[in-house]
């Protein structure tokens, strides 16, 4: 065994380091430490919110807060696996950048202001009605009824559940919208 000068210095440091410890701690304690689980592994099943493979996830909660999201080991497609996006899901939920208030930006304003839901919903319904009424098309160029408005457009839905998409499409068609599109087109 050959000891170089550099190694010797290292070794000295190592030995000296141990001397700096509080009494007793320097003695190498060899009994195996116990490692309790850092966090819960979940019981609420869900489906990952990224791509359309549809991987199962299990969500663990403590006191109404999500503490862990990992792959659902029983799921026949992903068998517990998740990619980097799926594995990062916890940071979607507990994220300080999430919106927590209704925000409103008045025409020409340079910033958002916080509003309550009732105010915003009333005003949105009012604006839909104004625009729809002002831009209602009863008949087309052929003279046949078309019953639509081309002044309101809607996009979105791929981030939503089937039930949400269904309710939206039902509402939008009842409003007479034809500009209805979503992520599938792009």
């Amino acid at each position: 065994m050959k000891v170089s000068r550099r190694d010797f210095l290292k070794l000295s440091g190592a030995a000296a380091g141990s001397l700096l410890l509080p009494g007793g701690a320097a003695l190498a304690v060899r009994e195996a430490p116990q490692f309790p689980l850092r966090k819960k592994v979940g019981e609420v099943t869900t489906i990952c919110t990224y791509c359309a493979v549809g991987c199962g996830q299990v969500v663990a909660t403590v006191g109404g807060k999500v503490v862990n999201i990992e792959g659902d080991p029983d799921h026949p497609i992903n068998r517990g696996a998740l990619c980097s996006k799926g594995a990062a899901s916890l940071q979607i939920i507990n994220n300080p950048r999430r919106l927590t208030k209704v925000l409103y930006r008045a025409p020409g304003a340079t910033d958002w202001e916080e509003k309550d839901w009732d105010w915003a919903l009333d005003r949105i319904a009012q604006r839909i009605k104004e625009t729809r009424d002002a831009h209602w098309i009863s008949t087309g160029e052929s003279g046949k009824p078309v019953n639509r408005t081309e002044a309101i457009a809607f996009v979105g839905g791929s981030q939503n559940t089937n039930e949400e998409c269904y309710l939206w499409v039902k509402a939008l068609r009842a409003m007479g919208l034809v500009y209805i599109e979503h992520q599938a087109r792009i």
Partner: peptide
Amino acid sequence: TLLGLGFNWV
């Protein structure tokens, strides 16, 4: 004798 050297290094 080694203590000072070692401490320094750390």
